[in-house]
Structure formats: structure tokens, C-alpha cells
């Protein structure tokens, strides 16, 4: 538990992730090769973070 958080605190990380996802969505449209790789990483990030947060706090 933490003290009451402000809207900025609540939405800072989600905003960054949304921007990264959008970059990923557009990148593979623009080109091939590296552009595709940027997409994989940027859109893979939400999946990775999900697994990270769930597994880190999983009960034994």
C-alpha cells in the first residue's frame, strides 16, 4: 500500500507504454528488417510486463 497517488503518478507509466505500443504498431508498416524488429520489441513489451508483474508476486 502506498499513499494516495495523483493522476500523473497513476497514468505516467501507462502513457509511456501506450506511446511505445503506438510506435510498434506503426514501425512495421513503415519498413522491413529493423523496422519489424522495433515492432516486435515495442508490442512485446506489454506482454512481458504483464508476465513480470504477475509472476513476481505469485504466491508460492
Amino acid at each position: 500500500m502506498v499513499a494516495h497517488r495523483s493522476l500523473t503518478q497513476i497514468f505516467a507509466v501507462p502513457l509511456v507504454i501506450a506511446i511505445v505500443s503506438t510506435v510498434g504498431l506503426i514501425s512495421a508498416l513503415v519498413g522491413d528488417g529493423w523496422w519489424d524488429a522495433v515492432s516486435w520489441v515495442a508490442l512485446g513489451l506489454p506482454v512481458l510486463l504483464y508476465l513480470l508483474f504477475i509472476w513476481r508476486r505469485r504466491p508460492n
Binding site: M1, V2, L7, I10, V13
Partner: peptide
């Protein structure tokens, strides 16, 4: 999402 997370860190599980 905002009121739900007022007392929680990002990614709280």
C-alpha cells in the same frame, strides 16, 4: 482505472 489505482503502485498484483 484511476480511482481503482489510487492506493496501488503500477502493476500491483
Amino acid at each position: 482505472y484511476a480511482p481503482s489505482m489510487r492506493k496501488l503502485r503500477f502493476g500491483a498484483y
